[in-house]
Design a protein around this nucleic acid. Sequence first.
RNA 1: UCCGAUGUAGCUCAAGUGGUUAGAGUACUCGCCUGAUACGCGAGUGGUUAGUGGUUCGAGUCCACUCAUCGGGACCA
Length: 1096
Amino acid sequence: MYREFKQLNLPEIDKTILEFWEREQVFEKSVDQRDAANSYVFYEGPPSANGKPGIHHVMARTIKDLFCRFHAMKGQRVERKGGWDTHGLPIELSVEKELGITKEDIGKSITVDEYNQKCKETVMRYKDMWDDITRKMGYWVDLENPYITYTNEYIESVWWLLSQLYQKGLLYKGFTIQPYSPAAGTGLSSHELNMPGAYKEITDVSAIAQFKIKGTENEYFLAWTTTPWTLPSNTAVALGKNITYVKVKAFNRYTKALTYVILAKDRLGAYFTEAKADLTPEEVKPGNKPIPYIEIVAEMKGSELEGTEYEQLLPYVTPNKPAFRALLGDFVSTEDGTGIVHIAPTFGADDFKVAQKYDIPPLMVEDEYGNPMPLVDKKGQFVKEVSDFAGRYVKDYGQEEERSVDSDIVIKLKTENKLFHSERYLHSYPHCWRTDRPVLYYPLDSWFVRASSMKDRMFELNQTINWQPKSTGEGRFGKWLENLQDWNLSRSRYWGVPLPIWRTEDGEQELCISSMEQLQQEIDKANAALGLQQTLPKDLHRPYIDGVVLVSDDGQEMKRELDLIDVWFDSGSMPYAQWHYPFENKDKFEQKFPADFIAEGVDQTRGWFYTLHAIATMVFDSVAFKNVVSNGLVQDKHGRKMSKRLGNAVEPFETLATYGADATRWYMMSNSDPWENLKFDIEGIGEVQRKFFGTLYNTYSFFALYANIDGFKYEQTDVPLGDRQEIDRWIISQLNSLIEEVDAAYAEYDVTTATRKVMNFVNDHLSNWYVRLCRRRFWKGEYTADKIAAYQTLYQCLNTVSKLMAPVAPFFADWLYGNLNTATQKESNISVHLADFPKADSSAIDKKLEQRMNYAQRISSLVLSIRKAEKIRVRQPLQRALLPILDASFQEQVEEVKDLILAEVNIKDLEYITDTSGIVTKKIKPNFRTLGRRLGKQMKNAVQIINGLGQEDINQIEQSNQYTLSINGDTYDLTLEDFEIITEDIPGWQVANDGALTVALDVNISEDLEAEGMARDLVNRIQNIRKDKDFEVTDKIEVLVEQHSGVESAIEQFGSYIKDETLAVELTSSAELTEGEVVELPGDIKLHIKVQKANL
RNA sequence: UCCGAUGUAGCUCAAGUGGUUAGAGUACUCGCCUGAUACGCGAGUGGUUAGUGGUUCGAGUCCACUCAUCGGGACCA
């Protein structure tokens, strides 16, 4: 028996199937039954269990899951090792928040050990929740043996990778300008800077300084700055290559000295009013912002000024290399300032970069250990070399002072004739989110991966990767690789993979550790040389690893560089570290590298996708993955980002519990391509549930109901296709076409097409055409070969659909498959996920058959459309429809499906018009596709000529299949192919068109037809009454109809038909009937009908 | 501000290499309850394809600019 159900309950199915999977270990079997030699390698991008799973995780994991399931069904072995990302700043921050501490407390009020212990506990906080969502959404991944990034084994593999980079000379120490909070004494990540409220509007003193050009008496560059405290560190000025500059003769407003100042022509108006040849110094007052000038003495492009040397503005410290020159920078604009930018390489990222390019040194002094440091120390105070301002804070760090150091610097410049102008300036400036104090851009020591040196190779290898969508790979990722910067690995944090580099105090000698074994050897060596008792730490994290002192070849102590590495390196290491490669599982790794498939959100483009690619390229000269699907964001239904703050985040557990995993998954995959941002609308899931799963469920229920009655268990051999009805062969043909299309779509990682095709097949073809038209075959008559053929056909469709949908809707598919196969035992698999993906039988595909059924559907639709327009109900039979034939095969084709059409639209006959001349009005159009290429510019004239052709000409063309077109003396021989001819109208008939198809309907209703229509309505009313009275389907009845002129002939002519349809043993009319039900019939007829069970 | 993506019916999405009635579903209107399904079926209304300009015989499709939304980077003088 096939199981029958009261109604569709997807969440219930989820539960049942989930239990079944676990009980039968279906996932394990689906992997184990496939040969390792035919592997499909998938890498799981590790989530962090530190946060709760969201609906976007369901999205991303649906994609991962479905392609793995698909390939498993295609016969490949698809192992899916899970993983957890356990390190990183977000975890540290959440721990600090919880403990109510800041970074500064670590090592003081809490030991590093305790702190890291706390991180380790926190990191798996929501693991249960993640495991739960993984189960409930049907994501098959091995959670028993996941890789965990904080384990010693994982770290050891990461170390090995780092040492590989180190040996290739790809790891170096340098400094970069990074956001740094002197108040907190820590560098800030860009994500901390992007926290809401980080940028505040503050007022600073801005200054336009005069940089005196070397070898001149009184010529100056004017450069603007909002941070006068960086002026002592100035070593260059930057100009725009294509910006036009002017040299202006003017008086200094403070000193009244005659000067020639250079600034961008576009900025002239911001600082100067008008030219006055006889200007006197007294006319220029300090308070006036724009001031008059004497004249413009020269004009030049920025490029002409490149290399111009000037005198140091504030000579506290002398640089060790030539400096103080004009450079060209593409970041220079004329939107504000002077079009000349002051460059302090120690305090600006752009400054640093452009200075490096021109080999201009930063201004540095030596600290107490002799190491170089900038003119401002890590507390934000000027160093002693900046004599007048030594010890002063450069920004507001809570100190009390009369004037800010910026103001004092401005005053100093003013008195030395080095200031052009100064004013207060309101701008937004980043602040430390913990201390609320201003951030400085500050040079910090960091370890870098020389990724830029490998960018060409990365770019090349990227071209072999199949990106879905393509644009992300070529555009976003490709562009990123083209402009690749070195990878800053350093994080001055506690909970992460420690950098395995030990250095002597002078930094002259260093050692990069590549394994525990090597570390042990080095420890032994150090113990011997230094007389220590060190042992290998049990935990490779800080603080234990920090305590390890090693020894250099010449006997010096070596200490570990205190940095941790960027967590992104952790996750990019997973192809190797998940197997503890190269220390274990060498063969395993070799089998599983690179991945066939990975998938994550687009936000991972510069994250995981990049780190995987970079490490694989640099260490193995290989791609890390061959196919990648990057999915878009999940937004709310209005296209806004989901966030806790807006309260529009969708709760995944709730969604799964309400709609079931399959409807949710199916909705997300079918609604739009996964790489588009998904406007997540919960009603869309409801729609999928109703329209797709509901329909498929009903189709199954229908099948089960009658198959159980007839005892169909698919015991008979298949009825040969040739012996089955046309409509059976049609749906089988459609089904096989569907298999081909869906298989291809999945293979190309195009799940949206796959799901839409399946949906379309189930709704339009299977349910609404095949089953609807075949209903009678299932319930009427004996258990004949034809009936068996119908069952076999429908069974095959359902069974195949279950396999086609299985990757996306694994629960329902397995439920459906199970219901079918437990009854028939036709396939030996206990689960659809152990089955092979269906193979299309191309011999069963009959495109001509598909075409003629398509005609049948469209012709039916046209007839119904005319009925509707003419307000003639379908129950009213009509005599005939006319069909102008399109081409030779058309009539033949339609003839095959004629009976279907007649029954479907309730007409008696279908007639073809072959000789259409004089009967129909035709319309002719040029075929733009064929003619456009040939005619080119003549097309316009041709259109005019062709559209002007009359009925005669059209007939002529149709018969002779040739036409000579002449335009302006040129002639072209055209054939029927070059035209589109459609029947527009049949005078005197009601006509409808659909593309080239035209249908005319005879809407005359003869008395006979009217009576037959009435008879059908009577049947309908009587059946309704039967149903209202809850009669059994098999009950015989007696019918008494009130006498009425409108139904007389119906009862007379079609009495036996009515009796037959309603199982009436008697049908009589009576003039005086006042009992029974009042029914309304066409023609405003109201009368009584009395129905009662027959006494037999 | 720079880079990228997107913009088609009220909403969610389609429209081979440019080819002439821009299609589905949903919503809405109207009509249909007889043995699978009203969680259904049928028919209809609904578009200046964001805007402007260009290339072309022909543009939703190609190009330029503008606007809007989203994402990423920069926020520095």
